[in-house]
Simulated scan of single mutants.
Amino acid sequence: MATVDEAVNRGRGLTLEQIVLILAIFAALVLAVDLVHGIVTGRYSISRIGRYAWQGLMYGLIIGLAGIGLSMTYSILNFANFAHGDYISTGAFLGWGVTYIIAGRVLVLGDEVSFGHLALVAPQRGVGGAEIGISIWSTPLAILIGLVFTGAATAALVLLIDRYVYKPMRGSGGIPLLIASIGVAFALRYLLVFVYSSRTRGTTSTFGLPEFNFLLVDGTVNVDMHDATLLVAAGGLMIGVHLLLQKTKLGKAMRAMSDNKDLAQVTGIPTERVIRWTWIIGGGLAGVAGYLMVLWTGTINYQFGWLLLLLIFSAVILGGIGSVYGAIVGGIVIGLAMRLSLIWLPGGDFTTITAFLIMIVVLLIKPSGLFGGKTTA
């Protein structure tokens, strides 16, 4: 009787997956037909669709880059780090403070703008990216130094937090670490408010910024130098992570710890060293992702990383929690889905709902995610 019940339950599970798959395919076909009909009749502009697709790719690269660290943390340390979003915000503020200092001093703003105001990303006196003229075109050295400093500073920050918060609790299991990470998130977020204020401020200037115009049938898609910087930096770092995981001893040790931590310890892999490098790489990439997002959007505030965290989690789960490649692909899928949904939806929270809906559908069809299974590689 038990065998029959198990067979029936398995049959029900398969039936549910098949129903969800059929509904998903049907919905995709309806949207595809509507999209084609809208393009033919002129209701939907090809250039508008192209702009949404490009913006979605940019957004997806940020989500995917930030998701790498979250995925590595889960696969090696076995806990969901809710402070990851605030690493993104903190690193971005630190890096943009350095960028403002270098750019402000080079462009000689005057004695009335103090070092402190520049370091705090100008929360007062109306000094912003437009006034200083910060952009990848006009102040490339300041941007580059700020980007490198962001990665290094965020990596140092997460190592410090691990040393005094997570390491003493490492043997307690994933739940205590998760709760501790929530506390770290709140502490960092309101420390940012205390130091930098809660104001949203502009960070860059688009005046004189070169653009590449891609001609489509009924318009153009404009790609500026900040878009290109994001594409090159994020793509290069993702390739670097791939090479690290596949071609180096550290990468092999990370993959071994992800597969079986106890066996890795028995075989002599220096687990503490691997954990430190996991924090360095994951934290550094989180900070860089935050810096690049601020460069791309041109604004910064204390909670943008926290708001981004939900999308990062959805991307990591969609791609297969614990998979670095899954986090990258999941991020791009989420980014594209959010922006392309603007073809049919009014925007705002509806685009976020679209991202989570896609995640839920994929997980119902394939519960382990697109790349299935818990693996760093």
Results as ranks from 00 to 15, higher is better:
Met1Thr: 13
Val4Asn: 11
Ala7Pro: 00
Arg10Ile: 14
Thr15Ser: 14
Glu17Asn: 05
Val20Thr: 15
Leu21Ile: 08
Ile25Asn: 07
Ile25Glu: 10
Ala27Met: 12
Leu35Gly: 11
His37Gly: 15
Thr41Leu: 13
Gly42Thr: 02
Ser45Gln: 14
Ile46Glu: 15
Ile46Val: 15
Arg48His: 14
Gly50Ala: 11
Tyr52Arg: 01
Gln55Tyr: 12
Gln55Asp: 14
Tyr59Lys: 12
Leu65Glu: 06
Leu65Tyr: 05
Gly67Asn: 06
Ile68Glu: 13
Gly69Pro: 04
Thr73Cys: 13
Ile76Asp: 07
Phe82Trp: 02
Tyr87Asn: 02
Gly91Val: 11
Trp96Asp: 04
Val98Thr: 03
Thr99Met: 04
Tyr100Arg: 01
Ile101Tyr: 07
Gly104Tyr: 01
Val106Gln: 11
Val108Ser: 13
Gly116Leu: 15
Leu118Met: 06
Ala119Asp: 09
Val121Gly: 11
Gln124Ala: 14
Gln124Val: 15
Ile136Arg: 06
Ser138Pro: 08
Thr139Ile: 04
Pro140Gly: 12
Ala142Ile: 10
Ala153Trp: 02
Thr154Arg: 00
Leu160Cys: 09
Leu160His: 02
Leu160Lys: 01
Asp162Gln: 08
Tyr164Phe: 13
Val165Pro: 00
Met169Ala: 12
Arg170Val: 05
Gly174Asp: 07
Gly183Cys: 05
Arg189Pro: 00
Val195Phe: 08
Tyr196Pro: 06
Ser197Val: 12
Arg199Asp: 13
Thr200His: 00
Gly202Asn: 10
Thr204Ala: 09
Thr206Gln: 09
Phe207Lys: 03
Asn213Ser: 12
Gly219His: 06
Asp224Gln: 07
Ala228Tyr: 03
Val232Lys: 05
Gly235Phe: 08
Leu243Ile: 11
Gln246Thr: 15
Lys252Tyr: 11
Arg255His: 07
Ala256Leu: 07
Asp262Tyr: 09
Asp262Phe: 07
Ile269Leu: 10
Thr271Met: 05
Arg276Phe: 14
Trp279Ser: 02
Leu285Lys: 05
Ala286Cys: 05
Gly290Pro: 08
Gly290Trp: 09
Leu295Glu: 11
Asn301Ile: 07
Tyr302Leu: 03
Tyr302Trp: 14
Gln303Met: 02
Gln303Phe: 04
Leu309Gly: 01
Leu310Phe: 13
Leu311Trp: 02
Ala315Lys: 01
Ala315Leu: 03
Leu318Phe: 05
Ile321Lys: 02
Gly322Cys: 08
Tyr325Cys: 07
Gly326Arg: 12
Ile328Val: 15
Gly331Cys: 04
Gly331Glu: 07
Gly335Val: 06
Ala355Cys: 10
Phe356Ser: 06
Val361Cys: 00
Val362Cys: 04
Pro367Leu: 05
Phe371Met: 13
Lys374Asn: 14
